[in-house]
């Protein structure tokens, strides 16, 4: 069952020079019970995409498409309505989670303020839940009575994740939550997310990252974005082991991994840099860096083509029939 259905979503940034087409006609579906990974390099629109689901503020503009979340179109919700579903139905873990909590309030007060806004009336009940959850992530229940500054970085990370998920959101968005973390802390975060899923505290997760190798560890399905467009989407196994789009393939081949050393086997990156999204070409946006580009690539936009079981990629090399 689909938790979130995004259809042909277009989110642009309005600038003095024109529209920056950060998300340009993206469609996908997040199913109930899955971790959906979104990967791409900086500027590919992954962050814009998920933030537009939560809060659109200028210069971000919605230029078309829908995002159906449990039957409601997130793009047309009023600010009050979207506030109402925050934390209870749709929640986000901020990128710099370690510093996201108000330092002048105790954890339990932060949580109570939040619960109050969503119509909770029994403070005891909420605090009891908080303490339960803190124990669940192996933090002392006493943390509820502490200020964020009294916690170490790792503890704060856990506390923030507890706060973001306390009201059992159906869909949790994690936007680059691990990119500023050490590998050992990153591992903890992944364990926590996995646990939240297993315990049914959240039903689905959208995990956004630039790190494909990390996605490989947690996501059930992944979507690869390039310059505001979907280039490939499918089950993680399929996409990682059997990438169809040249971009995905080159990207995966450029990743260092254990056993590969410069001395023995030189890896190659992708030459060139992403195009400007101000006036992107009509055709494929990767063609400037693609070693296999055809004559029609600059002018004709490739459609997503089925290349395997629930595995799609948008490339002219993969044939014509469109999805």
């Amino acid at each position: 069952m689909a938790m979130l259905t995004v259809e042909d979503l277009k989110i642009y940034y309005s600038t003095p020079l024109g529209h920056v087409k950060a998300v340009d006609g993206v469609s996908f579906e997040v199913k109930e019970g899955e971790v959906f990974g979104i990967a791409g390099e900086s500027g590919c629109g992954k962050s814009t995409l998920v933030h537009s689901l939560i809060l659109r503020k200028p210069p971000m503009v919605h230029m078309g498409g829908r995002a159906l979340f449990k039957g409601k179109d997130l793009m047309t919700l009023s600010p009050e309505e979207s506030k109402k579903i925050r934390y209870t139905e749709l929640s986000i873990i901020p990128q710099y989670a370690m510093n996201a909590l108000n330092p002048t309030k105790k954890i339990k007060d932060i949580v109570w303020d939040l619960a109050k806004e969503h119509g909770y009336t029994d403070r005891e009940e909420v605090e009891k839940l908080l303490r339960e959850r803190l124990s669940m992530v192996k933090l002392s229940p006493k943390v509820a009575d502490m200020y964020p500054v009294e916690l170490s970085g790792g503890m704060r990370q856990r506390a923030t994740m507890v706060v973001s998920t306390l009201l059992n959101p159906d869909l949790l968005i994690a936007d680059e939550v691990t990119s500023a973390l050490d590998v050992t802390t990153q591992r903890v975060v992944i364990e926590l997310l996995h646990h939240f899923m297993k315990e049914g505290i959240v039903k689905s997760i959208i995990f956004v990252t630039h790190d494909l190798a990390l996605l490989d560890k947690i996501a059930d399905r992944v979507m690869i974005l390039y310059a505001g467009k979907v280039v490939e989407i499918g089950s993680t196994e399929e996409v990682i082991n059997n990438p169809a789009h040249p971009y995905t393939r080159l990207l995966i081949n450029s990743l260092p991994r254990m056993g590969v050393q410069y001395k023995k086997q030189k890896l190659k990156g992708i030459p060139g840099y992403p195009i400007s999204l101000l006036n992107p070409p009509k055709g494929c946006r990767f063609y400037t860096r693609c070693p296999y580009a055809l004559d029609k690539c600059p002018s004709e936009e490739p459609k997503l083509v089925k290349v395997g079981n629930e595995h799609y990629a948008a490339c002219h090399l993969l044939g014509g029939e469109s999805q």
Partner: peptide, 21 residues
């Protein structure tokens, strides 16, 4: 521990449960 925490393509992670900080 560091090596275990590095996400490496094609090495599956086992979820070991949450350990205390």
């Amino acid at each position: 521990m560091l090596l275990e925490s590095v996400p490496d393509l094609n090495v599956k992670w086992e979820f070991k449960g949450i350990e205390p900080e």
